[in-house]
Design a protein around this nucleic acid. Structure first.
Lengths: 190, 190, 190, 190
DNA sequence: GATGAATGAGATTTCATTCAT
DNA sequence: AATGAATGAAATCTCATTCAT
């Protein structure tokens, strides 16, 4: 019944978030999903493929959301704010997922082949900043690739702070973080 | 002869950098150091302890350097610039070390006990920003903890870009990155 | 449609020949037959039963052919020649089948219960040789069981040479092999 | 103490002989040798490598013995007799070893890379027969490769008969088999 | 201090087989 | 008859760690 594949996928997110990818056995995922562990192999082929799938499907959704922001054609600082909102609000929607992405995927030595997809996010941010330079919102001498890196880094570190329990993460804190990022880079890159 | 302990320690940094902590076997470290792997246990006690030692000794040096900056009593934006310089220049000095710290330690689920030491760096940055607010360099409504997180995140992401080969890292690029971080946060936090 | 059971049986021969019994998964058989693997169980009950069936049905046909030779009542050397012809020509008819019988069945530790059926072939050969002794074609002090073993071994090894690609196997080579076996044992056992 | 590698090697022969290669677990070998199974990997690297080693080391010894026969320069039929003696007496010396070689190695699909070494034995037999043709002991129109195959097949099948318990194998039977092979091919190939 | 043989817990993965549909 | 999702026993292999020398 239902969709066992999706069931396993979301159980994997929980399990990876709870114990970390390496410490998490395939049987932990299966147990969490309430299925036999053979089924994980039936649907995903390997433990690593589960992580990869989680990453790819999630990341694509985020890339789509960012692209939608770009297409609105609003001023660059507003676009940066919206991207910050998208990234940071994901935390509220699915903290376990963020935990996994932040801890296991982003700088994993194993998933270096995913770098291409990760860098698409940087590229989108760089495009936004480039447009900001063109419209005069940002300084002309800015290296947009580098600026994109700083923005992305600031966002990811805030997420990490939440993941690690080092920063408060109430709804109000999330909103405040969003404003802080927006303001800092609106001024900082101007 | 010489100092076998130091020999093993630096071999470990190379080995962890090359293959990642998990994929790296104790025998890889020993081989790289040119000793029998039993000796790794003689000096460090466990594989995890090697990583911990690498982290702790390095991190302490960085904390000391940051504290020295604080004690000079210069204006906050200048202190931020100097911290950026310290962090980014480490890359030039020892890329393998940075690779290991960035990939394995900072958000490792295993080394969560090191979080205390990691957060000392955030605390130092937060103190600097707090002082910037007092002296009028930074806006008064800033959450200094959050601001410190953004600065640290920007720095670490630039390092990551270098580690992952996504950003150019010539001496000139390193200097430019340092200036970009300094300028962005001097303005952005003002 | 058609006869799915026969379809699966012949797909199994191909699959076993290609990958070997152990390396061959039930799904390989099913795939080769173009059916779902559940159907293999419907018709045969188990993977081992498929191999057993292949063996038994084939072997019986060969035993029947040999018995027909016996019943003709020709001189023993001529009977040996005809048995050689039967065994060796099977290769031309169905090399995959020979491959499976030679590699998987004959000395499989699992199918030791089939030994009874295998030894019927030896027994037939031994009877022919025994009659050869009676009629004076073969030496009287011959151990017919041992002689039958030698004849059978020579035949199987020639098949093996073909299976393994170590001996040439054109039609002419097959005919030459048949003559060589006949001549060697006609003289050798005399 | 003692030579653990040799200990494991001979335990493997016993274990493979008893249960067959596939049905035999690595831990069976280790248990038989009285060591932890990790040690099997320490010395051999994999289960397959154990079988390969057993084969290669044994086979080489047999090739050496056959070569020694060749070098004596005796008449070809006598050389054939001596080769038969070498091959058949192995059964008395180490039945388990023969069991493994006959059942697992000779026509294993996995060890097809060993074929080169197996065919060296055929080549030696073919050389002997070729010399027999030159010296007039064997008929000139003989295909020596094919004849070698028959001799080898006869020998292997006799071993198989002993392995499978289908032929009597007392010392006297072994001696009789040796004489039967020698006589059959001395006459049969003449 | 130094070595590496020896250990064995534990993880991944395979795949024959079952069974609901 | 036909399918293939679901199961889980079982096997291989890895590798951190111990310890006798």
């Amino acid at each position: 019944m239902e969709d066992k594949r999706a069931l396993i996928r979301s159980a994997a997110v929980r399990a990876f978030a709870r114990k970390g990818y390496h410490a998490c056995r395939v049987s932990d995922i299966a147990e969490d999903a309430g299925v036999a562990y053979g089924l994980v192999y039936h649907y995903f082929g390997s433990k690593e493929a589960v992580l990869e799938t989680v990453f790819r499907e999630t990341w694509q959704a985020m890339l789509d959301a960012i692209q939608a922001v770009e297409e609105l054609g609003e001023p660059a600082p507003e676009q940066v704010r919206k991207v910050a909102a998208i990234v940071l609000r994901t935390w509220r929607n699915d903290p376990d997922l963020v935990r996994v992405l932040v801890r296991e995927v982003t700088r994993s030595p194993q998933l270096q082949n995913e770098i291409g997809e990760i860098s698409l996010a940087f590229a989108a941010l760089a495009r936004i900043i480039e447009r900001g330079k063109a419209e005069g919102s940002f300084r002309a001498d800015l290296d947009s690739r580098l600026a994109a890196t700083m923005v992305y880094g600031a966002l990811e570190e805030i997420l990490t702070g939440w993941v690690m329990g080092q920063l408060p993460d109430s709804d109000e804190d999330v909103a405040a973080a969003e404003r802080a990022v927006a303001a800092t880079f609106a001024n900082g890159l101007a």
